[in-house]
Design a binder for these strands. Structure first.
Length: 885
DNA sequence: ACGCTCACG
DNA sequence: ACGTACGTGAGCGTA
């Protein structure tokens, strides 16, 4: 027997919040309401053993009820931030449990539950509604039971028609009439003055309904009659407001709500994150106590054909109708990944193509389909797909919609971007996680072809379902241009850059390593000598013991685990003891040796002799790229010893050159534009030295009186402004007192009023909207912007100030990359774009193209986006990356 | 797996 | 009073 449990999420989480004592995890996150909710959820699952579950939430402030009555729910206390910050957590937790949830703007949780319970009973299923709200009793029937919470949320009391009759002497439908007469203070529903529960019940027992009472007021007398006559309209409206709407356009199917027991793989990490230790123990996860009744395999409908030479014609015939594709590849580094299989999905069936078949020579039609740029492909992480196929010599083109990339734009801070998390987020039927199917780490194992093909078919089906949902969301957020004209095209460009790779002079790198090694050895012996013993210099713990316990140096700073020995501390200790300087030099060289010499050597591809980084397009919250395997965005430059590393990055063809071009002060130029500050704009319109100009305005002196120290301070203030300034942060950076830093900041804002206004406005807007945006409509949500915890809130405020600046700069260089790619193609140039380092692009160019590229690259970068101040890019070239400075 | 340290913009 | 500058990734030691 199927049994559906519908939970009023808002009602339960509110009651849990007020019933539970305050509770936070170690990172200060409030968790008491989530804890209370989870506790009751698990208990009721255990008791009731539902086969289907859905949790409904209210969405947004305005509902259809406000259209007729603006005061609906008026006068309510604002939800405390300690509670509102728990809503996203609750949804995340439900997803991790494999429990479906739903909300829809304009409707309340009540209405969603009313609708689904009606559908449930109409199809003959048993329905249990869990809520703290008595109104819900109106949906009770033979098939629908309402469990009302008692004593906070620790107990529930089930109500069927019989219980309602016993307690009130009413039918479920009459509950609406009851509220029509007595009203509801908490929802600001007026009812009729002077009529409370007792009187209302008496009237209903006599007349049966609000309408009947109102039409027969002549049978009544006294004050009560007067009130009913005068407030007849209030009574009718109250009844309307109290009536649960049971025709909500709910986008959840019966299959979406299937509950197959707690999904331990995701539930356990989530419970750990929340630090719900007692729940973890009580559940005895590993046993089946939490799984309640259902333990059947979650089987989403798939109709998968394993493609072979025999049935290939079926696939060929289906190719025009392919809605989604998925290439499964194993391994973190997409340049060294193994293709496990591929699935193509039409509306009603899937085709699984094994790697063997794909490479067999018989798969020609599939290869033609994959490489045809005019055939639009929809998939998940098509960037990775492109690379995985490339290294199998299979060309790929025509990426049109990448759901991972879309998910990133819709919420760049969402940590779990796995396909199963996305499917859960969109409430699709259960999709097993890769970890469940393959295991992880050493236990990773490719399952049999039947299991694998079905898993991939489900993935592919999920992709096809997610695409239209995301299309609507992108449209709603005005992100179409950002997605289709910037990020999707960029994804292909990045893949091209990565495939191209950067040539590394291996011998020169080894040579450099030998130099470093000699210096390191010398330093190590000197340090051991001075310390009077040998120890592991790489261990902060052992180093701390030597410095502070043995040598008795003063402790400047502590970490969670002991003494801090970072460079900042060591700088301060240097005057006390000669060993410190050696340690600083050792640290510097050891870093170069392990990360850049040894690390880079390991990454040189044996086939190409190059390093092929992987630019991640969906991780940085601000819209920047990141670079991995190896990270080529943090190659040393600030200190000469490290900068030498750049000499080993060379052109891949004889006689070619490396050309680099970087934006000058792009973030401050963006700030000048978005703040519309006259002083800042003027500085850039005249292409002044921005730090000197800042010093002039902050210190109120002419240019010739700005000394090096003033300029240094001004530079630090400019950095601080971009980061979302705080006096503490600036004081740390400049090594001055907080008071002095605060004075600098005041003076800065006095000089640049427009910037002050921007900072105030952006924080205000973020508090109102819950997110901030870049010029190209890239969003970042800031759930903690209204937190009552000072630290969390302050951090969110600085992020609100910084993200539009850093993010717009990221938008701009991405635009420049798309334009540059097009310019190289249209002009038939052989030069190649190799790297992006946030404000810099690196190319390799044949000598005969040096002149044109020296003009073309900065011109293209400067025209990427039209701001109220000019963009400026500076270009240089040389025989290697070091020389291109 | 996590913290510390440090490389970059 | 609160105690952090914004955004990343890699290597190492320790648990």
């Amino acid at each position: 027997m199927e049994k559906l449990m519908l939970i009023d999420g808002n009602s339960i989480i509110y009651r849990a919040f007020f019933a539970m004592p305050p509770l936070t995890n170690s990172s200060g996150l409030h968790t008491n309401a989530v804890y209370g909710f989870t506790n009751m959820l698990l208990r009721i699952i255990q008791e009731e053993k539902p086969t289907h579950i859905l949790v409904a939430f209210d969405a947004g402030k305005e509902t259809f009820r406000h259209e007729g009555y603006q005061e609906y729910k008026g006068g309510r206390e604002k939800t405390p931030s300690e509670l509102s910050e728990q809503f996203p957590l609750m949804r995340e937790l439900l997803e991790s449990f494999g429990i479906s949830w739903f909300e829809l703007p304009g409707y309340e949780a009540d209405d969603i539950i009313g609708t689904i319970s009606k559908q449930g009973e109409e199809s003959g299923r048993e329905v249990l509604v869990v809520t703290g709200d008595k109104d819900m009793l109106q949906v009770v029937s033979d098939k629908v039971t309402v469990a009302l919470t008692r004593k906070g949320i620790s107990e529930v009391e089930p109500y069927g028609p019989k219980e309602i009759e016993e307690k009130y002497g009413l039918t479920p439908q009459q509950i609406i009439d009851l509220k029509g007469l007595m009203g509801d203070a908490s929802d600001n529903i007026p009812g009729v003055p002077g009529i409370g529960e007792k009187t209302a019940l008496k009237l209903l027992h006599q007349f049966g309904s609000v309408e009947e009472v109102l039409s027969r007021t002549d049978e009544l007398k006294g004050k009560m009659k007067e009130n009913l006559v005068n407030h007849a309209e209030d009574a009718r409206m109250s009844k309307r407001l109290a009536t649960i709407f049971r025709e909500v356009p709910v986008e959840r199917t019966w299959d979406d709500m299937v509950f197959n027991g707690l999904r331990e793989e995701t539930a356990v990490p989530m419970l750990r994150k929340l630090e719900f230790k007692s729940l973890l123990e009580r559940l005895d996860l590993g046993g089946d106590t939490a799984g309640a009744g259902a333990s059947a395999e979650p089987e989403q409908e798939v109709n998968v054909t394993i493609v072979d030479a025999g049935n290939l014609p079926e696939l060929v015939e289906a190719l025009p109708g392919i809605e989604a594709m998925h290439v499964e590849s194993a391994g973190e580094n997409p340049h060294h990944s193994t293709v496990m299989g591929m699935v193509l999905s039409t509306a009603d069936r899937q085709f699984y193509i094994s790697p063997e078949f794909l490479k067999s020579g018989e798969a020609e039609p599939v290869l033609a389909w994959l490489s045809d740029p005019t055939i639009k492909k929809r998939g998940y992480d098509l960037h990775r797909t492109d690379l995985a196929l490339h290294w199998q010599d299979i060309p790929f083109a025509g990426a049109d919609f990448d759901i991972q990339l879309a998910a990133y734009l819709l919420d760049p801070t969402e940590g779990d971007q796995t396909l199963s998390a996305l499917a859960a987020k969109y409430g699709l039927s259960f999709l097993a996680s890769d970890e469940e199917v393959y295991g992880k780490g050493a236990k990773f194992k490719v399952p049999d072809e039947e299991t694998l093909s079905r898993h991939l078919a489900r993935k592919c089906g999920a992709i096809a379902k997610i695409v239209p949902i995301q299309q609507a969301e992108l449209e709603k957020n005005e992100m179409n241009r950002l997605f289709y004209e910037l990020e999707m095209p960029l994804s292909r460009i990045l893949a091209d850059m990565e495939k191209q790779g950067v040539a590394v002079n291996r011998d020169a790198l080894i040579e450099l390593g030998k130099e470093f090694e000699a210096q390191i050895n010398k330093l190590v012996s000197q340090i051991y000598e001075i310390a009077g013993q040998e120890f592991n210099l790489n261990s902060p713990k052992q180093l701390g013991e030597i410095l502070f316990d043995k040598l008795g140096l003063p402790v400047i700073k502590k970490t969670k685990t002991g003494y801090s020995t970072d460079a900042e501390v060591l700088e301060k200790l240097a005057p006390y003891h000669e060993i410190v300087q050696y340690i600083l030099e050792y640290r510097q060289l050891a870093k170069l040796q392990s990360t850049y010499v040894e690390g880079l050597l390991k990454e040189i591809n044996v086939k190409t002799g190059k390093v092929h980084t992987y630019f991640r397009q969906t991780v940085a919250a601000t819209g920047r790229l990141s670079s991995q395997f190896p990270n080529l965005q943090n190659i040393p430059i600030r200190l000469e010893e490290g900068r030498k590393i750049r000499k080993v990055f060379v052109p891949s063809e004889e006689g070619w050159l490396i050309l680099g071009a970087d934006y000058s002060q792009i973030e401050l130029r963006v700030l000048a534009h978005i703040s519309d500050d006259p002083g800042l704009k003027e500085a850039f319109l005249h292409d002044m030295d921005i730090h000197t100009k800042t010093a002039m305005d902050v210190f109120g002196v002419p240019a010739d009186q700005v000394d090096a120290n003033m300029r240094r301070s001004a530079k630090a203030v400019n950095f601080g402004i971009v980061y979302g300034i705080s006096d503490y942060g600036l004081s740390q950076n400049l090594n001055i007192t907080r008071k002095e830093a605060a004075r600098f900041i005041d003076q800065y804002f006095d000089a640049f009023e427009g910037v002050r206004r921007y900072m105030d406005n952006i924080v205000r807007d973020a508090k109102r909207d819950g997110y901030v945006k870049t010029l190209l409509e890239r969003r970042r949500y800031l759930p903690e912007i209204n937190a009552s915890n000072f630290n969390l809130r302050s951090f969110a405020e600085r992020t609100a100030m910084n993200t539009p600046i850093q993010g717009t700069a990221a938008d701009i260089i991405k635009l420049a990359m798309v334009l540059m790619d097009e310019a190289l193609r249209s002009r038939g140039l052989r030069s190649r774009m190799l790297l992006q380092v946030h404000d810099e692009l690196v190319f390799e160019v044949p000598p005969e193209e040096l002149d044109i590229m020296t003009k073309l690259v900065p011109e293209t970068m400067e025209k990427a986006l039209d701001l109220s101040v000019p963009l400026k890019a500076e270009v240089s070239s040389g025989t290697n990356w070091y020389e291109a400075k």
